[in-house]
Design a protein around this nucleic acid. Structure first.
Length: 269
DNA sequence: ATGGTTGCGTAGCAA
């Protein structure tokens, strides 16, 4: 079962590039982020005609997540539990019916968290957009812990807006004050990992130079000034099934690309 | 330090 995550930065803008990648990469399931569309405006029929099951959780102009699948989906839920007042569309879950195993897939678009304000002591103030990010991550931790109780394969796939380690940025010194790399952000990410999840990419690949996002600005792609912020976290039962993990780096160099590229795993399921 | 780009939607915010 090939499962991918891909922040497409707008479904309308990626109406050619996304089907092109789907045809070339042939994933079984894809978690999409930043569809930037309400459900009714998502080109559902176009993807259904190409053989995809389509589940969206959209929002006007911003955010929005979706799951495309060749395999049957069951028990689809939308929204991250823990705050009924949260109106941002950043979380969707579905059970993917593989040939041999069922996999619970969570597609997520974790808040960016910038800009960050700092106190006189130089520490970040936990308020505003940064407070929302850390609060959202605590809610995600609670849901991730709950999912482990089922002792089944679980995959948490998406744009985490977290640079886990310095080696995950071409220029880590440029990110010291940024919500994607602040110690508090990385600690919140580690708290999820420390529940017992495995970060798929780092379980197989070590060392610097592996990125999933290059800014549109200042020639970041041409300079390979990237960061690795798109991740797949695996429950122990999913980690046991891991066959392969890859970043589809070349997609960033194609026509009208997203600023992110797909990251995928292959599970024996 | 500044400016650099793209998307959505048609101004200005988000990233």
């Amino acid at each position: 079962m090939k499962i991918a995550t891909f922040n497409i930065n707008g479904i309308k803008a990626r109406i050619e590039a996304l089907p092109r990648w789907l045809e070339a990469a042939k994933p079984d399931v894809v978690a999409l982020q930043e569809i930037k569309s309400v459900d009714d405006a998502f080109p559902r029929e176009m993807f259904e005609d190409l053989g995809w099951r389509v589940e969206t959780h959209g929002q006007k102009s911003f955010n929005g997540v979706a799951i495309l699948s060749r395999l049957p989906l069951e028990d689809v839920t939308r929204g991250l539990p823990g705050d009924d007042s949260d109106e941002q569309a950043r979380w969707i879950e579905a059970t993917v019916m593989g040939d041999t195993r069922r996999v619970r897939l969570c597609g997520l678009y974790l808040p960016n968290g910038n800009p960050v304000s700092f106190g006189a002591d130089g520490r970040p103030l936990i308020e505003g957009k940064y407070g929302y990010k850390l609060g959202w991550m605590e809610r995600m931790r609670a849901r991730a812990a709950e999912l482990l109780l089922g002792e089944e394969p679980v995959v948490l796939a998406g744009d985490y807006n977290i640079i886990p380690q310095a080696e995950d940025a071409a220029r880590p010194e440029a990110w010291g004050q940024d919500a994607l790399f602040l110690p508090e952000s990385r600690a919140a990410f580690r708290r999820i990992l420390n529940l017992g999840y495995t970060e798929a990419f780092r379980s197989r690949v070590s060392g610097p130079g592996h990125y999933s996002f290059w800014d549109y600005q200042a020639g970041a792609w041409d300079r390979n000034n990237g960061i690795r912020i798109d991740h797949l976290l695996l429950s122990p039962q999913a980690a046991d099934l891991l066959r392969d993990v890859q970043i589809d780096r070349a997609v960033r160099g194609e026509d009208k690309p997203s600023d992110h590229v797909p990251v995928w795993i292959d599970l024996d399921a």
